[in-house]
Amino acid sequence: MTQAAPWQLEILGLRSARGDYCWLDLAAPPEWQSRPGQFVNIRCDDAADATVSGQEIPWTGDGLPDAPHGRHLHGPSPLVRRPISISRLIDDGDGSRRLVLLVRVVGSGSQLLSNRKAGDRLDVIGPLGNGFDLGGPARRAVLVGGGCGIAPLVGLADALAASGRSVTVFYGERSADRVPLPLPESARPTGDGVVALRGTPQLPGADLILATEDGSLGFKGRVTDAMAAWGASCGWDDAELFVCGPDVMMAAVAALARVRGVERCQVSLENYMGCAIGVCLSCAVKIRADNAQGWTYKLVCRDGPVFEAGDVIFENKWEGCKK
């Protein structure tokens, strides 16, 4: 038996954030061990939960938009769990531990989660997956997040900073109103300038560089453009990349890493999971291999979610499942 067995974890707090996100704090079992980059798999249905009964909740479990041409006549009860990245596992002293998650409301499961209240219990399996390898020799850690991909990077930034590395976090979003991170007053649009914010609340040990596609906050443009501008002045010597975000973004960062000769680039993949324990085989991704076709399938849940960027054949298929 492992630590993964379903746990009933109490919600300690739930704070909504910009961009349809919420930060969720759960009481974690004292015996849990977790590495940055691991995830949990959470049951989101709860027929007994009075906080959701009677509400109209969009049904997006089948990858469809929120019934834009009509109204569903009964509420959703998502069947399979939802995999959520672990943002932090914090030791609060006195033996109690706190699991911090960042949830983006994208469908029925995450909507139900975001409607829960402190004191409720959630059925959680985890921690699952391999997590990032923090054992590389590079002294400069460059973390790159896109959208909900920032979730595992906050705890990773803590761990890397604690190990004495300089940590720079790039975070890309479409616009300022979708950024869930708490930001200082000084955060503002910077056009084509790359400006680092030091010690923001969720990233106390890191420099944060924001990029928005519409220029409403930080660098105007894609996160890889901000990285290129930053790299032009700082260089990429002694740097290692840690990336989590949409496939297209991760593929672009992986390409940049290759071109700039960055020694190592780890990516954490997102995928549609049926079970998250390696039995349903739905979250298969193509990983380069020495065989006739040049690749083999690996499971994001069990073999990942973290892979070496150069090994991944990015297909951007999971994006097509989302609304």
Binding site: D62, P78, S282, W318
Partner: peptide
């Protein structure tokens, strides 16, 4: 057998459809 291309599984109302 490597199985089918992905996506291979999707949740539906009170169920799921798979093609592994």
């Amino acid at each position: 057998r490597l199985g089918n291309e992905t996506p291979r599984l999707v949740e539906t109302r009170a169920g799921m459809v798979n093609a592994i």
